[in-house]
Structures are given as structure tokens and as C-alpha cells.
Design a protein around this nucleic acid. Structure first.
Length: 928
RNA sequence: GGGCGAAUAGCUCAGUUGGUUAGAGCGCCUGCCUUACACGCAGGAAGUCGGGGGUUCGAGUCCCUCUUCGCCCACCA
């Protein structure tokens, strides 16, 4: 059957549907060895994208990486599960819907909580999940029968269970403190959600007069507007400048009220003036100081970051001239006012880190409020121990330090959000009960108080989105139930993600895994890099430098994109792509896919589709040297691909055991997808297509038994190549594989390459002998081609003479090759041998054992050829003398490993021979 | 203020525990539309591996230092 000229990428979706219909991606829990089956499980849970997200390049990178691993594991015969799903994405989704409302001139408060939730649900039902369809388009071989959603009833149940368990063990508590508050989103944020960025600001030096005395002290602050909430100034007790002031009062400018000077180690004598103003309600550190000294905590900034009096305001602390102004306006007004009353000593400009909301980039306001927290230190310990014990590894390994550092300094996690879209906190309050019965944590909804029967009301807040995400590897498999999937697939194997969510997600999942199941949820964390543009900027929607993966799929096909991404990205390294030149950026992948397709076209057109004999059944001795060579190269490629991907599991991981441990020497092995790409490419293109395929053209045309052998070897090796390539380019490899002639292993397997077996080295025999073909390639063909190009031999020149060199191709000793080389050199004296085009080379290595030599006597430039040969000889002699020096150096021979020395000795012999050959050549051609 | 990463051919990047003459893709030059492939074939040019020291028989690889970029963390007002 003839294939079309090009791989029609518009057929990719059809192929995908066929895989799905054949259940290629559906995992069977009962086949897992953990559930009594006969296949080791291999599981990856997808980092769930936001339910309303559209696929961007980051997702594509993440998805393709996982898919390569998943497809590889599947071919390795594992019971493979890639569990897909989405995240309800509390703040992000709520923001989108709020924006829609804003466009209609409404706020969420206008529509009310219930209506807002209905609307958001409808919005998610309508637009959500787009990204999952897009993942199909890039070939993601996920098990869609298990698609999960963090806000589904099942996962919501897991969330409540987790909350309840943590609460019951005293690890969840309600705290009153200063937290990060986003005035736009109107919610608190965790430390991780409030991201730092450096901004130009100023340090204001403000004079506080000493009450009832002379003199003043100077306070430095970057946020003068908060002085309205000052209740004290702090100095360090060890600071001699201020020691005698401790216990006295100073006068807070503008408000003209007296506040005490207190001693606290928080004041750093080295920084600024050594005096710190204390605003307990609007700064997390000041809050701690305030608690230590039992200070009042007047609120002067409201939830919208406006200057307004709030709780604990003992006097009218917000004067009319700033009342109702934003903090930024207020900063200016206060500054002006301080200047007027002569209290502003100076301002110095300074860059400082300002926290921003990670969702809307609004400057975060520290705010005093009641929130729910998770006590993290007890959870962090097993996660640290697990990594140290080798139960888990992070690749690239340098990120392990980041993980450890964060866990060691971990702080309690604020998990309550003042949002509507999310898991409502499963706490009910009873008005009629006295403490401690006023608060009830429940796994089921409560309508009445379990103690007094009074009506109860549920906590208004919802949980941080990440509180559901951190359960993902368990909740998606059925936890808290002892489900079939939990048994069969938990713990999972690899987690693939970007390093930007180590804290948000990766580390927290490990903590949850240990706390709720006693085990790490995965043994390997693979962190890939990010996509950047040619200026090194991270690709993002806001910068407008994004690159739409769907556009790439449309233009070049999913495989071309996958190939470009995989082959272009080293372990953990960022990838640079040019969003303005897609043709150039994806040329690598597009060209490769086309090449693969064309090899298949050749195979089907020239070798036909009749069944071939299994290579292992070909009688010994009937294989040509080139056959053995390509079979040997396939084995080499298989070994290199296996090394690139490394072990599927730690060697010490027993499917049914609770202990998993990476040995130190295997801990950094594998996961080098770009090496897989490079090796497979080299094999199929540089070796199979460029050399082997060219060499058998004549044999195929000649027909007969030898043609059958060539066909069998061609089909076998191309089949092997397709298997190695399939994880990276699933579509084209599958499409081509479907057309391959029947024969050998393929016949016994299923209908899909997607579920065919990963090739094994040496499966068809031992072809080490094929190595000698390398010598032919290097010694003769290349030399011919070079000379031909150098002397500009017209390609159409007909071979004038055929020289019988059959023995050259049936022997491989150095001496015999030397003889052949000399023969050709002698000929060069009168007739320069130019290489034939590849087609002719084919004839050279067929059974005829002929080499074509072109007669171009008139073009011979003996001087030029002599110069070239002499140069080569000089260079070789130079290298040889270095080698001789090394080998006569006793230090080298005694200290270097034996195999290195042996290799050098072998090289010496080889080079010496080559030197002799070159000398002979020079002698013959140039007359000495 | 700490920590991490990057610096290798014009461009984008590989180079696993130190060990042949440092590789690939794209681009470039020469010649080819050779009956699978011009998204291709053959040949070629191109790198003092950021600078400087050091360890070693041997350094792109290990140590120190400097320079330039990038990232993360941190309660310094």
C-alpha cells in the first residue's frame, strides 16, 4: 500500500480516537501486582490545570513530558495509569466570573452567594474542561475514564475527611493574627500566594518628639500611612542610644497622642535609626511585638486598603484629610502633612520587596483577622525524613535543597479564604451552646447543633484551593476509602511539574501523603524548565509573548511539537522558543516527522507489504555485513535509550512492600528525555536511513533470497526504531507501524504500537560482528565522497571502471583494509576515485562486492591531493606523539584505570597503522 | 542579606561519576530536484568550552576567584 506524500496531521484525532476506543489508555486495577495481578503499576497523576484554563505552552511541556514517560512505561509492560483532571481553582475562577459580572455592572455581592455559585458552576460546565480536550490533541494518553475534578462530590468528601482528621489531631486551629490580604480579591492569602517583587520605594525618617521633655527620636518607615495605627515605638534594649528612653513616651506626630517606647529584640540597632514604629494591626512582625507587650491593635486601614477606622480604634485615629483615601494616596498626604509640621527629617529612596497577590498582582495588605491554619511543622518532618532516606528523589537534584530549605523553615498555613468558590470550611457554629461546644467540625452537613439541637450556621469561608490539591494523588484514587485504585496504584510513581509550584503543591502533597497514608505519594519528582522567548522572558499571556500549542498542532501536527519540545529540553532546563517564527522554531520536529514518514514510504514502496521472516530465523551466514551492522546499531540504540530513561522504579521498590528506596547510585539516573530523542534520531536517520537503507536498494531491486533478508532486516530495525520513538511521536509512529509488513514479534502483539512492547537489546541475536561495517563507512565511502566533492566530480559521471574488491568487504583486519586503501590510492595517481552517489554505494556493498571508481583523470590535481594528505599526516603524527608520550608516562600507566590504558594502547596501534597507510599513500602519490 | 542556576560553533542547546581528535538541530558555504524524502542528499567552514588561578598523568567536567545574566528564599521597619 502506498502512503501519501506527507503525513496528514489532520488524521491525528482519528488515531487518537482509535486508541481510546481500544482502551489503550485505560488502567485495570486488578492487573496491578499490588492487587494480585501480574504487572507492576506505574502511575502519574497530572498536575490538574485550572478548570477554565486554555492550554498554553507550559501545559504542553508538562503534558508531553508525562506522556513520554507514560507511553514508555506502558510499552514496558507496566499497568500504566495517567490520571487526568482539573482544579476548580478558587480565586482564579472566581476572578473570571467576577470580571464577567463587572462587565454587567454588578458585583458578586449584588447577585448573592447562591446565585454566584450557580453562575460559576454554569460557567465551568460551559467552558471548563477545554484543556482536557486540548490535551487529547497533543496526544496525551491519559485514562479519561478516571478524569477527576477537585470540586467533585468524591474529592470534596476527601477534603472534608482531611480537614476533620487534621482537626481531630490538633493540627488545624483558628488563629487571630495579621495575614496577607488581597484588597481586590477580598480574601486572605497564604505566604506562598503573596509573592515578593522588588519595587522602588522610600524610607521616611520621621521625628517623634519625646513627651514632656526635650529632644526626639527618629523612626524610619517605608509605609508612613500606617503610623496612624502606631501604638508604640520599639528600640533594642542593648542599644545604648535609646536605653534611657525605654518606658517613657513619645508623641505620635499628626495625631499628637502619646505612645510608649518599649524594648524588643525585633528592633535592630543596625537598621535605619534603630527605632521601629509598632503598628500591630497592619504588620505581621509588629503584631508579634504587640502580642508580646500586650499592646492595643487599632485598625486604620479597611479591607479595601482604604484609610478608615476599624476595630480597636481607641481615639479618632484617622483624620479627615486622609479619611476614605487609599493607602497610596494617604502615603502622599501623610508625607505632605509631616513636612508641614516639620516632622519629616528626610526621605531616602530604597528598593524593597513588596508582596503582591499571585492571582491579580494587587499589592497585598497585612490585615488583622481570624483565619484557619494548619500546623505544618509536624507534617514537614516525615516529608524531610522521606527525602533523606531516599524514599523520594527530585530531579534535577539541586531542587532537593530548595525543598529541604522550605520544609525546615516552614510556617503555619493559612487555609481559609474569604471567597465563595471553593470547599466551604466544614465547621458549624452554634449560638446557643457555650464554649467549648460552640464550634463543630463535621464530615457531613449539619443543620442543627449536635449538642443542643439549635440551628447552626456554617463558617462563611472556603478552603484554599491548594487544600484540595495537596490530596490529589490520594483523593483521585478514592481516598479516604480503601478503594481498588488506592490499593492498585497508590503510591504513584512520578510527579512531573515545574519548579514554581514546589511549595504550593509538590512538597505539600508529600506532607499529606505521609500524614494520611504514611507514605510518600511518589518516588520521583521530575521538574522541567519553563518556556521562554528569545529574550529569555518567561512566556505568559500578560507579556503577549505566548505561543499557542494548538496553533502549532494545527500547523505542523502534535508530533512535530512534541519532538521539538522533547529534543530541545535538557533535564530541568528552560527551553527557548521564538513565538514570532514558528516555522524555524518547529522545523526540527516537522522535518523529523517528515523524514520518518518518508522512510516508511520507501519501505512500503520498495519492500512491499508482504510478510517478512523474523530476523532471528534468518540462517546464520546469510546476513550481509550491512545487515549485521544495522542490527548491532539497533542494539546500541536500545541500550542508550534505556540508559537515557533510567529505571522505572527504584530497584528496591517491591510492588507489595511499603518501603521504597533509591540507592545513591541510581538516584540521579534517567529521565533524560532529550537523550532518548537524540539517540533514536541518530539511529533512524543517520544510521538506518542514511546508511542501511541506501545500502540495500540494489539488493531489494535484485530480488531473490538476499532481497528477502534485506527486507526482513529493514522491517525489523525500523519496527525497533518506531518503538523507541513512539513515546515522543506517538501519532506518526503509530500510523506508520500500522502499515508495516507482518512478521516476527509484531504479529503476536496487539493492533497498536501504543501497547506494543518496548524493544530489548539482543532480542534477535548477537550482531557485534556488524561493527566492522563502521570501518567500511569510515575508511572508504567517506574518503570517496570527500574526494568527489573536493574535485567537483559531476554527479552524472558514469563509473568507468569497476574494481573487484570483494575481499575487502568480507574481511576486516587492519592489514587487509590497508591493502585496499593502498590500492585505491594507487588508482588515485591516475584516476581520482570519487564516490558515487549513495545509489551507487548500494551496489558497492551488495553481494557483488564492487566499489565504483570514477574516471576523471583530467581533473586530477596531484599537488592539491598531496598537500591534503601531508597535512593529515602531520596532524596525525602530532596526536600520535602525544599519545606515545602519555603511554610512556609511568604515572599515567600506573594511575589511570586499566581499561583507559588499554583503550589508549589500542588507539596507539590503530593510529600507528593509519600513519603507515598515510605514509604509503604520500609515497605512492607524491613520489616521496 | 543568603542560596541556586546559566555562560560551550552565528543562533538554540547536549555533554551522567574527570579519560579517544568537544557533539546535535537550525543557520552559513559548495555541489546536487539521484526513481522515499529539497521539510531532502553529499561535502565543508566554524568553538583559546565567560576571564584568571589551582588540583591531577589528564579538566568543558573538580576546587578557588572575578565578570555578566537569570531565578528562588528572607520579618530588616
Amino acid at each position: 500500500m502506498a502512503l501519501p506524500d506527507r503525513f496528514d496531521t489532520s488524521t491525528e484525532p482519528e488515531l487518537y480516537e482509535r486508541w481510546v476506543e481500544a482502551n489503550c489508555f485505560t488502567a485495570d486495577a486488578s492487573r496491578s501486582t499490588r492487587a494480585g495481578g501480574d504487572r507492576d503499576p506505574f502511575t502519574i497523576v497530572i498536575p490538574p490545570p485550572n478548570v477554565t484554563a486554555i492550554l498554553h505552552l507550559g501545559h504542553a511541556l508538562d503534558g508531553v513530558t508525562q506522556d513520554v514517560l507514560i507511553r514508555w512505561a506502558r510499552m514496558r509492560g507496566q499497568e500504566t495509569l495517567w490520571l487526568p483532571g482539573t482544579d476548580h481553582a478558587g480565586i482564579a475562577t472566581q476572578n473570571v466570573v467576577e470580571k464577567q459580572l463587572a462587565a454587567e455592572g454588578k458585583t458578586r455581592v449584588d447577585v448573592g452567594r447562591d446565585a454566584f455559585l450557580k453562575r460559576t458552576e454554569a460557567f465551568v460546565a460551559d467552558t471548563g474542561g477545554t484543556i482536557l480536550k486540548q490535551l487529547r490533541a497533543i496526544g496525551a494518553s491519559a485514562d479519561w475514564t478516571r478524569t477527576a475534578y477537585t470540586f467533585s462530590p468524591e474529592l470534596s468528601r476527601a477534603v472534608r475527611e482531611a480537614f476533620a482528621q487534621l482537626y481531630e489531631k490538633g493540627l488545624i486551629y483558628r488563629g487571630h493574627r495579621v495575614i496577607h490580604w488581597c484588597p481586590r480579591c477580598q480574601t486572605s492569602l497564604s505566604d506562598e500566594e503573596a509573592e515578593f517583587s522588588d519595587e522602588d520605594g522610600a524610607l521616611f525618617h520621621i521625628t517623634y518628639r519625646i513627651a514632656g521633655g526635650d529632644g526626639h527620636i527618629t523612626v524610619a518607615t517605608s509605609r508612613p500611612e500606617t503610623m496612624l495605627g502606631d501604638v508604640a515605638v520599639a528600640v533594642n534594649a542593648k542599644d545604648p542610644r535609646y536605653a534611657k528612653l525605654i518606658g517613657t513616651n513619645v508623641i505620635l506626630p499628626i495625631l499628637n497622642i502619646e505612645i510608649p517606647v518599649i524594648a524588643d529584640d525585633y528592633a535592630d540597632p543596625e537598621f535605619g535609626t534603630g527605632v521601629v514604629k509598632i503598628t500591630p494591626a497592619h504588620d505581621a512582625n509588629d503584631f508579634e511585638v504587640g502580642k508580646r507587650h500586650n499592646l492595643a491593635m487599632p485598625v486604620v486601614i479597611d479591607q479595601y486598603a482604604m484609610m478608615n477606622p476599624g476595630a480597636n480604634t481607641d481615639v479618632q485615629r484617622v483624620p479627615a484629610f486622609v479619611l476614605g483615601k487609599s493607602t497610596t494616596e494617604a502615603r502622599d498626604l501623610i508625607k505632605r502633612s509631616l513636612k508641614e509640621i516639620g516632622a519629616l527629617e528626610k526621605t531616602e529612596s530604597k528598593r524593597h520587596a513588596v508582596r503582591h497577590c499571585y492571582r491579580c498582582d494587587t499589592v497585598v495588605e497585612p490585615r488583622l483577622s481570624d483565619q484557619w491554619f494548619v500546623k505544618m511543622a509536624p507534617l514537614a518532618k516525615p516529608a524531610l525524613d522521606g527525602l533523606r532516606a531516599g524514599a523520594m528523589r527530585i530531579l534535577p537534584q539541586r531542587w532537593e535543597a530548595v525543598y529541604v530549605n522550605w520544609l525546615e523553615g516552614i510556617r503555619d498555613w493559612n487555609i481559609s479564604r474569604q471567597l465563595w468558590w471553593g470547599h466551604r470550611i466544614p465547621v458549624w457554629y452554634c449560638k446557643d451552646c457555650d464554649p467549648p461546644y460552640d464550634m463543630h467540625v463535621s464530615r457531613t452537613d449539619l443543620t442543627m447543633c449536635p449538642h443542643c439541637g439549635s440551628p447552626v450556621r456554617q463558617d462563611e469561608d472556603v478552603l484554599d484551593t491548594w487544600f484540595s490539591s495537596w490530596l490529589w494523588p490520594m483523593s483521585t484514587l478514592g481516598w479516604p476509602d480503601d478503594s481498588k485504585d488506592m490499593k492498585a496504584f497508590y503510591p504513584t510513581d512520578v510527579l512531573v511539574s515545574g519548579p514554581d509550584i514546589i511549595f504550593f503543591w509538590v512538597a505539600r502533597m508529600v506532607m499529606a501523603g505521609y500524614f494520611f497514608t504514611g507514605r510518600s505519594p511518589y518516588h520521583t519528582v521530575l521538574l522541567h524548565g519553563m518556556a521562554r522567548d528569545t529574550e529569555g522572558r518567561k512566556m505568559s499571556k500578560s507579556l503577549g509573548n505566548g505561543l499557542d500549542p494548538m496553533q502549532v498542532v494545527k500547523l505542523y501536527g502534535a508530533d512535530a511539537m512534541r519532538w521539538t519540545l522533547v529534543s530541545g529540553m535538557g533535564l530541568g532546563a528552560d527551553i527557548t522558543l521564538d513565538p514570532n517564527d514558528l516555522d524555524k522554531t518547529f522545523a526540527t520536529g516537522r522535518n523529523f516527522v517528515t523524514k520518518l514518514w518518508n522512510i516508511a514510504r520507501f519501505l512500503l514502496e520498495k519492500a512491499g507489504s508482504a510478510p517478512v521472516m523474523p530476523v532471528a530465523e534468518i540462517p546464520k551466514g546469510t546476513l550481509q555485513r550491512a545487515d549485521e551492522w544495522i542490527l548491532w546499531r539497533l542494539d546500541v540504540a536500545i541500550a542508550e535509550c534505556d540508559a537515557a530513561l533510567g529505571p522505572l522504579h527504584p530497584a528496591k521498590a517491591l510492588a507489595t512492600s511499603d518501603t521504597v528506596q533509591w540507592a545513591p547510585d541510581e538516584r540521579v539516573n534517567g529521565m533524560r528525555l532529550n537523550d532518548l530523542a537524540e539517540t533514536a534520531r541518530r539511529f533512524v536517520w543517520s544510521e538506518l536511513a542514511d546508511w542501511y537503507l541506501e545500502s540495500i536498494k540494489g539488493r531489494l531491486e535484485a530480488g531473490g533470497d538476499d532481497a528477502e533478508i534485506a527486507r526482513a532486516v529493514l522491517v525489523h530495525t525500523f519496527d525497533g526504531a518506531l518503538r523507541l520513538l513512539h513515546p515522543i511521536v506517538p501519532f506518526v509512529s503509530e500510523a506508520v507501524w500500522q502499515q508495516l509488513p507482518e512478521g516476527g514479534r509484531r504479529k503476536e502483539e496487539g493492533r497498536f504500537l501504543a501497547t506494543a512492547r518496548w524493544p530489548e537489546k539482543g532480542s534477535a541475536g548477537n550482531y557485534e560482528k556488524g561493527k566492522s561495517f563502521d570501518r567500511i563507512e569510515a575508511e572508504f565511502v567517506k574518503a570517496f565522497r570527500q574526494m568527489k566533492a573536493e574535485y567537483a566530480v559531476p554527479p552524472a559521471t558514469e563509473p568507468e571502471a569497476w574494481i573487484k574488491l570483494g575481499d575487502i568487504f568480507t574481511v576486516s583486519t587492519d592489514a587487509e583494509i590497508a591493502t585496499a586503501t593502498a590500492t585505491i590510492s594507487r588508482l588515485a595517481r591516475v584516476k581520482i576515485p570519487g564516490s558515487p552517489p549513495q545509489r551507487d554505494f548500494v551496489q558497492a556493498v551488495t553481494a557483488s562486492g564492487h566499489v565504483a571508481v570514477l574516471a576523471i583523470g583530467g581533473l586530477v590535481d596531484i599537488d592539491k591531493e598531496c598537500a591534503r594528505l601531508t597535512g593529515e599526516l602531520t596532524s596525525l603524527e602530532k596526536q600520535l606523539s602525544g599519545l606515545e608520550g602519555r603511554l610512556s608516562n609511568e604515572k599515567f600507566t600506573s594511575k589511570a584505570p586499566a581499561d583507559v590504558v588499554a583503550a589508549e594502547r589500542a588507539k596507539l596501534a590503530e593510529w600507528t597503522t593509519r600513519r603507515q597507510q598515510l605514509r604509503d599513500k604520500v609515497q605512492t602519490l607524491c613520489g616521496g
